[in-house]
Design a protein around this nucleic acid. Sequence first.
DNA 1: AGCACGCCGACT
DNA 2: GTCGGCGTGCTC
Length: 882
Amino acid sequence: MCANIEDFLGLLPAPGTLPCLPGTLDCGMLVSVAVGLPRLPLLTYQHPNPIEPGSRVLVPLGKRVVTGMVVDADPQPPTNERGMLIKQVAEVLDDAPSMPPVVMELARRVADYYLCSWGEVLFAALPSGLAPSSVVRVELLRPVSPTELEVLAKHAPRRAALLQVLQEHQGDLTVQYLQKVLRTTTVADQLDALQRAGMVDVRTVTDEETQPRHIRAVRLAPHLAAEDADVRSVFDELDRRAPKQSLALGQLFLAHMRGDGPQPITQLARETGSSAAAIEALVGKGLATLESIIRPPDDAPFDALLVSRDEAALTLTPEQSAAVMTITGAMPPSPAHAYAPYLLEGVTGSGKTVVYQRVMQEVLDRGQTCLMLVPEIALTPQLHDRFRAVFGERVALMHSRMSMGDRVGTWQRIKRGELPVVIGARSAVFAPLRNVGLIVVDEEHEPSYKQDDPAPRYHGRDVAIMRAAFEQCAVILGSATPSLESVHNARTGRYTHLALTHRTDGASMPTLSVVNIAAEKEAGRMKGTLSSHLIDAVLQRTERHEGSILFLNRRGFASQLTCQDCGHVATCPNCDVHLTWHKKPGHLRCHYCGHTEAVRTACTECGSTDLRDGGIGTQRVEEELTSETGNRKPETKPETGQLRTANGNRPVIARMDADTMQKRNAHRKLLEKFAGGEVDVIVGTQMVAKGLDIARVTLVAVVLADQALHQSDFRAAERTVQLLVQVAGRAGRTAKRPGEVIIQTFAPSHPAIQAVVDQRVTEWMDTELQLRKEAGYPPYSRFMVLELSGPDEGELDHAARVLDRLLPTDDPAIVRFAPVAPSVAWVRNRHRRIIVIKNPKDVDPSGARARTLISAALNTYYESYASASVRVSIDVDASGQL
DNA sequence: AGCACGCCGACT
DNA sequence: GTCGGCGTGCTC
């Protein structure tokens, strides 16, 4: 009997796969694809047509479909046995590569350096909205009666619970969501059973990539844009019959002259006092053409209050021009390139930003693009406005608070070359810019440039240097308080050192004073966390209509729910840490595992209901300041701009922290009120220390300066110095009156605090560098940390000892310490151990030897000794607390 | 990181 | 035998 089709089906591979002998031509072309998973090699797929490297593809992976990145268009066929079966690319997502070749190469090097997979780097760089993958969705097929649920609950409680959740929601739910709601690791078994019973429908669907929102925009019609166009007669005609249309057209004409792109209709109507209808009429008359454009993320008009001067027209100080000349002078004639790193050390107010802008202008004039990294916290509306004022519509801003649609839209516009100036946080270092001529890393000392938790554990500043080397371009590291690493690099000649020592505004340095908290307490002059001296100073500024900033170092300052009777502090059930009390949503949250619970009404230990904030939070400081000075709410202030009456000497206080700044534009609104004098005092966290440049601020106070000193971190002193100098820089930004900085501390004689108060920071750095050298600490070495975690402490200790023994004892590139428990030794219900490895740079300058030894040890460990319950991760440049 | 498979204990 | 709970291993 002849074989029927079913017999063949049994021999055919699963859908999506085709048997293919490596090297044969009838199966299309092979591509090498990186996916965003750890410890996974490049995968080989086939596709009928060639696909350019840097393009995204949807590929089948096990039972799923994920987004991968083509890294090689013509790879060697895989050599392993499994490679005989090569699946097909499901879909090509890009018509032009999402990642330029330089970024692909950069990502590969970053992966090599930080010992993670190429795909992990590529997908950390890409907005997640551009990396769709399959999701499993579950739908209830028929209603379930309460009795039915009850019966089921007796013998299958989890299925019953699952059905109940499905019943409570309309439509379908994702498996991920179900697992989260049911607080379980897997619901697959229950789903199988329910599906067999015909109760639910389970489908795997691939979600769409996020689409940016489009809006309508207009530009000048081509016949009016021509050189010889008779523009005058058109305007004459419009002026008589339709003045609103004339205004709008005038604006379009200006935009055309500036070389700007299409103008959003709503924005144009608002700016010209015309209307959407009037603009549509222009389109109807053929004077303007309609286009659909990606919605600009921030279309709010920028406020003159936040841009204090016209920086494009500013005359540079001799120091500033010298810096600009040095950098641009070293740029070879276009299109030649040269890698050139600079450390721009400029005191606060010395105008580093203007130096960046002038060099950027030169780079743009050469037809190249610019990338600027700033700490996440510094991505304020003020910074955006300053660059928008100079570079107009060419500036792209990338930060985590943007919606996914906006991030995807911005990425696409950068990729298309529409936005040649990119300003963003850490991950913007991988922005798809081509032909980069300048990279700026502002506030290069900021610890937030280092990514700590998920791989890739990279340092944004160091990757920026790497990218500059690949792009063969200039890179400026700017700071008022450079990191010791960069100071060291400048002194050893690796970076060209440029200094700005004078403030451009002519203001003198603020006066600094230290309040010894212990002594003040003794003398009865502390009102809670604030000294009388500080309170008096705030009142004095309020009277003079000047602004004050009270700064709280967020680390260690988080609010904690503390029992006033037994002293018990609410802790995380899964980790070794206190829960942070977020008062506005009214919940307790663990910053290590994300555990969230409703705020407790009674102490879990003693039952007392007297629970208060045990930490020093912005709210507590605000309350104390309010009760000591009397408060007037911002909204009760009737007329803006009017001078206060004599008894109006009560400061209007506002908070600025993650909790109060959640609403869209909250940050901008508060800054505008503060700049305009409607708010007298801002009590805030890190947010107020960065990039806040408001002239009326003449008082800045650090509520407790030694907090940063009490960390088990060799950088604690360095960070304290940097923080104090930065905060101090917010004061005295006007020539009229000198600023004042008040530092409250329990440790007034600590060398780090003394160094700031005596303004002897450079000398302090010398001493600190010497100490680091003697101890063999960074910048003279790297700390590479292997972290192990597992549910069973005995097994974990064993694994840590095994891995430790796999590292050589006699190699000078590796100086290692025995496995120990880190300061937070229990996270996400897992115990932790760390193996700290010191890698001296004098014997292993690039760290390559140490990385080779460590990956060899890890490979042996995985091959022969790995305990599946123990997970290992590695941080090649550990910076934080150990 | 998912997702499936498979072993094991509790309970019917 | 059935249900549910993990640990373990794979993904071209």
